[in-house]
């Protein structure tokens, strides 16, 4: 068993507000790790620490360690660009670029300097196949990605992340803007993807966490209350707060 991420004593402040309090947790390879908890508990903030997307927020201060393969990503000299090529991200709202489906997938590789057309074509095809979108779009790669349905757009965003051949995929409530059928497709996809990637997913739906994840972390008020395998969290949680949350007594 090996960990891709090891987080030690992570604290995060937005100005005076402490959004994360002394978080320590490991993210395992080829596992789906779910982050659950009520709104504002810090789970999305935590997720964004893993690929340093919090850098984009003014007034955000971080201390503690986020070790990605034993290197602290918050080291001054750490190459954040290469981190983000290895740690992909899928957002809450599908955010395809306003360009063709092909260009959307090819965007990441092109930014890394891949120009060869046949290589790009190959990357686009394999990525779309892995994201279970190929059959639906193979004849319309030149169409604008905005013409896809919401669920297709989200799978396109997953394909876009896969095109970078990342090691980890971070997902921030990827199904909250989708209908139940599209949600089901994404969940099946996540299940397939964990063969090759470590997946960290933030979700509001406890059923979803129970269905798709191997490990579950429960956050509350910026603290990590409990982290264990999903089975244990949902059957025999150690903490009273976790039990209250998963049984729907608050949150």
């Amino acid at each position: 068993m090996s960990n891709v991420f090891t987080i030690n004593n992570l604290n995060l402040h937005y100005g005076d507000f402490q959004a994360l309090k002394d978080i320590s947790l490991d993210v395992e390879r080829n596992k789906v790790t779910a982050l659950i908890g009520p709104s504002g508990c810090g789970k999305s903030t935590f997720l964004r620490c893993l690929n340093r997307m919090n850098d984009l927020i003014d007034d955000c201060q971080i201390d503690g360690e986020v070790l990605y393969h034993d290197n602290n990503v918050y080291d001054k000299n750490y190459d954040v660009i290469s981190l983000r090529t290895k740690v992909g991200m899928v957002f809450q709202k599908p955010n395809p670029f306003p360009m063709t489906i092909f260009d959307n997938i090819a965007y990441g590789p092109r930014c890394q300097g891949i120009k060869d057309k046949t290589e790009l074509t190959k990357i686009v095809e394999t990525s779309l196949k892995k994201a279970a979108l190929w059959e639906e779009v193979k004849n319309r790669l030149k169409e604008n990605a905005m013409s896809l349905s919401g669920g297709q757009q989200q799978r396109l965003c997953i394909a876009r992340a896969i095109a970078m051949e990342p090691e980890v995929i971070l997902m921030d409530e990827p199904t909250s803007a989708l209908d139940p059928i599209a949600t089901l497709k994404i969940e099946q996809l996540i299940n397939d993807l964990k063969e090759n990637y470590a997946i960290v997913i933030v979700t509001h739906s406890m059923q979803q966490a129970a269905r798709i994840s191997d490990n579950t972390a429960f956050f509350h008020m910026g603290e990590l209350i409990e982290y264990n395998t999903t089975d244990i969290i949902f059957t025999t949680p150690a903490n009273g707060k976790t039990e209250d949350y998963i049984t729907g007594r608050f949150g």
């Binding site: 984009l56 709202k93 670029f97 930014c111 992340a161």
Partner: peptide, 24 residues
Amino acid sequence: DIEHGSLALGATKTQTHFKVILTS
């Protein structure tokens, strides 16, 4: 969201500005 999408793919700020923001 589009800007963040690009940055999260490992694009630099300059790449994001020219390839995504200007085209959008």
